[in-house]
Amino acid sequence: MALVVGILFMIFSISVLIFEYKKLIKIADKRETRFYLLSMVVLIIFATLQVSNIFSLNIISGYSWVAKPIADPIERILSTFQTGGGD
């Protein structure tokens, strides 16, 4: 099922890419168009792999992982004051 959704998602993404590219080529310069194509291709691959459950990279967890050294003690301190504690 996930694979089917992934394929559908890819078809949708590529049609968006073509639709946007046709519009973009009229207004953007070469550098911008190249950037657009590159970023879209990379993101479409990432998103399709993610949607089809082949690949899993959780960006939000990435934020938590980076903030972890400070976030953990802060959470512990805050939790002592929750539900009316801390007095």
Partner: peptide
Amino acid sequence: FINSTYVVI
């Protein structure tokens, strides 16, 4: 998340 990561960030 709100009480830990989000506060720090």
